[in-house]
Design a protein around this nucleic acid. Structure first.
Length: 462
RNA sequence: GGCGGCAUAGCCAAGUGGUAAGGCGACGGUCUGCAAAACCGUUAUACGUCGGUUCGAGUCCGACUGCCGCCUCCA
């Protein structure tokens, strides 16, 4: 499999440090507010990566943190007059719930910086020992000039950074790009002890510490949103490599979710929370939407693009239902020789080739679409045998271990509704179409769509 | 100002130098009591613009235009 590595700026063959074992660290959200579709995209896209690697037979260890202590969680907690940890716990639970609805597999580890304080402190001590850290009156800082590779990930040069950064009057930092490792306690803020004084960690240090804690001093893939490349990931590299670790071997970054072609973000105020999205669209349709564009490309959110995703997904689910009907059918299976088995193999190959190429989802989905179309033709002619249907179904199930968007289990209808369907079919048999249409309209209003086929009436919920 | 990305039909979107996948939508048709679903057909002489390399370019090179992102918290 090839992936695009932000550090080398090219597609590279993914070669794990240990055969068939892959460690992934994803920078998770700061938990001070509801998650929006942009957070959803990052989570979904790297869930796809994880699931695909598992599909390819790798043993994946997936770590995704919650940032539970920083300026934003503190501000928000103060505003609400509650302790920071209470606020964080509340939003972690909300995120977990949203992510579950999106079909995101739970990470193997979901660490929080507040639970790794001793390690954070000793990591900073190590940076002092290696002469990368210095103390000012408000905290401990990393000296970026002491790390020769600073700027390599983001393509920023130290000189340019100096020009770009607005220097605050009272700033005593050696270099404007120097960043806080440890911030000394201010009134009303939670704090932890350290050799330099009570305080709390800077933002970047947590990821350096927790990734190495769970995955080791060198691990395979570090992921996150493109906005984290600078300064967050640049600073993580400086800390971890400054501490003498090899750190991440590959870097992957997802593109933004846009709204009206602008980045969706809290600071711009144009965000759409996941909760709000779920009120209008089924969570799995939202997942499919977030999945349907290449992970590095910008993805524009609109009612239209989401409806397109919804319609495409519905076509797959309808198809799965029809295939299931053939499998369940008591009728004599058609003995006609079908080439469906080799057709499924071709689709499987195209699906894999697509995703092997830096998660080219469009090619993978095209492979499924083409198989669906070819199978529909056989279904139409009644030439899909039960064995053929089972082949197709197992393909759909396999690809869904990666995509996680299809619906295989059907809910049961209430007896009332079932009785209405029987009643309507009686009316149809008696050619009382006005009564039949009346019942159909009534069910449509309840969200049940009926489809009449040769073998009876099929229903689905919208 | 520095760094980076993107420009393919009404919309979303793939595309390894050899002549434009797939999906959504629309229109026409088959099927249906009517629908729905499915299928068939139509829907880009054309890939932001202008040059160049080549037998041949959406695909490589250069210039230009437009949009977006990072450089400050942000997935």
């Amino acid at each position: 499999m090839k992936i695009y590595d932000t550090l080398s700026k090219k597609k590279a063959e993914l070669i794990p440090a240990q055969d068939k074992k892959i460690g992934i660290y994803l920078c998770g959200p700061t938990v001070y507010d509801y998650g929006h579709l942009g957070h959803g995209r990052s989570a979904v896209v790297f869930d796809l990566l994880r699931r695909y690697l598992m599909f390819r037979g790798y043993k994946v260890t997936f770590v995704c943190n919650w940032t539970d202590i920083d300026d934003k969680t503190i501000d928000r907690a103060n505003k609400e007059g509650i302790p920071v940890d209470e606020l964080a716990t509340r939003f972690i639970n909300i995120y977990k719930d949203d992510f579950k609805k999106l079909g995101i597999l739970e990470p193997d580890f979901s660490p929080k910086p507040t639970e790794h304080m001793e390690e954070i402190v000793s990591f900073i001590q190590r940076l002092f020992d290696k002469e990368h850290a210095y103390t000012l009156d408000d905290g401990v800082y990393f000296d970026i000039a002491s790390f020769k590779d600073y700027g390599r990930l983001s393509g920023q040069r130290l000189d340019d950074l100096k020009k770009g950064v607005r220097v605050e009057v009272s700033d005593k930092k050696k270099n404007p790009g120097d960043f806080a490792l440890w911030k000394f306690e201010k009134p009303g803020e939670p704090s932890w002890p350290s050799p330099w004084g009570k305080g709390r960690p800077g933002w970047h240090i947590e990821c350096s510490v927790m990734s190495s804690h769970f995955l080791g001093e060198s691990f395979d893939i570090h992921c996150g949103g493109q906005d984290l490349i600078f300064p967050h990931h640049e600073d993580e590299i400086a800390q971890s490599q400054g501490a003498g670790y090899r750190f991440a071997r590959y870097w992957m970054h997802n593109g933004f979710l846009n709204i009206d072609n602008e980045k969706m973000s809290k600071s711009l105020g144009n965000f759409f929370t996941l909760r709000k999205a779920f009120e209008r669209f089924a969570p799995l349709a939202v997942r499919f939407f977030l999945l349907s564009a290449h992970y590095r490309a910008p993805l524009n959110f609109s009612a239209d693009t989401l409806h397109q995703a919804e319609a495409a997904l519905e076509r797959y689910n309808d198809f799965i239902q029809r295939v299931q009907e053939v499998i369940n059918s008591k009728k004599e299976t058609n003995k006609k020789i079908s080439t469906i088995k080799s057709r499924v193999e071709k689709a499987r190959q195209q699906f894999t080739e697509g995703l092997d190429d830096d998660l080219n989802i469009s090619r993978a989905l095209a492979a499924i679409s083409e198989l669906v179309k070819d199978s529909n033709i056989l279904l139409e002619k009644g030439e899909l045998s039960r064995e053929g249907a089972e082949e197709v179904m197992s393909f759909m199930q396999d690809v869904d271990t990666v995509l996680g968007v299809f619906t295989f289990e059907r809910e049961m209808l209430s007896e009332d509704i079932e009785r209405l369907i029987v009643e309507r079919n009686q009316a149809r048999a008696e050619r009382d179409f006005s009564k039949a249409d009346e019942i159909r309209d009534r069910l449509t209003n309840e969200g049940i769509i009926l489809e009449d086929t040769k073998d009876g009436t099929r229903w689905k919920r919208v």
